[in-house]
């Protein structure tokens, strides 16, 4: 167990390290002169030289990388060029919104997908199964931002039930929650399509196994058999996809925040791109990539928690 864990952790840290090099290289080295990127082509050489000095761009590349990553490990992500405040402060300020959106989106995704997938599996080959599969096929093809626009058209423009966008701040929790409803739904509807299909096929696979017959022969209701006996055994493929979907969720929040004008990390990322604030962009891209890598790592660990047989194998 500990050997398995140690190997996974080592792999995880190595991936993070390589990812940080890629991010640093793309943002800092490949474009040539970051000062030129930040200040634009019409800037003067003096201004660019001054900025290079301020940002420490005259140092050797390796030293710059070490300074960046060393600072990041201490929570210092540098000074935002456009906002002129520490990037870590900007992130801390906007993290709660993005986190709320991601967590509620993921929760709704999982709830929807498991319900749809298991319902379809239980009605395998019948009308309910077909309807759910058709719906999920559509869900995969619909871009989240377009679905968002349609939701806004219906619930904000036509029915006026919910705000079309913007965020009133956490001071008014009800208003804050209301403004997160449509973004969460848009995120979850699209995300749950793939997961529902995976849940269905994993459940069908499990339902062919003998212990499901045992559970039925013990007189349990179909719903109980499905959630208590089928679902846990179908979890390995489901968790894999949930982990992979975390990437989709992260990029999904970036897009959705921009559709609904929600001041979270995704919006910050775009403002920073517009402001050519490379330092903030670099920090945010690294953060998003780190979240995805961490999610993949946690999925690896989760397998072992789910299945006692794997626990024994990998001990």
């Amino acid at each position: 167990m500990s050997y398995f864990l140690a190997r996974r952790i080592a792999g995880f840290l190595l991936t993070l390290f390589v990812v940080s090099i890629v991010v640093f290289a793309v943002m800092n080295v490949l474009p040539g002169d970051p000062a030129l990127t930040i200040l634009g082509l019409d800037s003067t050489e003096e201004a660019r030289a001054a900025l290079r000095g301020r940002l420490g761009l005259d140092e050797p590349v390796v030293q710059r990388y070490l300074a960046w990553i060393g600072g990041a490990l201490h929570g210092d992500l540098g000074q935002s060029y456009s906002f002129d405040v520490p990037v870590s402060g900007l992130i801390a300020e906007r993290l709660p919104l993005t986190l709320s959106l991601a967590v509620s989106g993921m929760a709704l995704t999982i709830g929807l997908a498991l319900t749809m997938g298991l319902t379809a599996a239980a009605r395998h080959g019948r009308a309910g199964d077909w309807a759910i599969m058709l719906l999920s096929q559509l869900g995969i093809a619909v871009p989240a931002f377009w679905l968002s626009m349609l939701l806004v058209l219906l619930f904000a423009v036509k029915l006026r039930w919910l705000p079309p966008g913007g965020f009133p701040g956490w001071g008014d929790p009800v208003a804050a929650a209301r403004s997160l409803v449509l973004p969460t739904v848009a995120l979850a509807l699209v995300q749950s399509a793939v997961l529902a299909r995976v849940t269905r096929s994993a459940a069908l696979e499990v339902m062919r196994q003998d212990f499901v017959r045992t559970a039925r022969a013990t007189g349990f209701a179909p719903r109980h058999v499905l959630w208590r006996h089928v679902l846990p055994n179908a979890l390995v493929p489901i968790v894999t996809i949930v982990g992979l979907q975390f990437a989709g969720l992260v990029t999904g929040t970036i897009v959705i925040e921009n559709v609904f004008y929600l001041p979270g990390l995704g919006r910050l990322l775009f403002q920073s791109i517009a402001n050519r604030d490379l330092i903030t962009v670099q920090a945010l891209v690294m953060l998003f990539a780190a979240i995805v890598v961490t999610a993949n790592f946690l999925v690896d660990i989760a397998y072992v928690v789910i299945d006692p047989r794997l626990r024994a194998q990998r001990a």
């Binding site: 212990f211 045992t214 055994n233």
Partner: peptide, 13 residues
């Protein structure tokens, strides 16, 4: 009770 005791028990319980 069934033929295959190996497969007839939920492996996770």
């Amino acid at each position: 009770i069934f033929q295959e005791p190996m497969a007839a028990l939920n492996p996770l319980v």
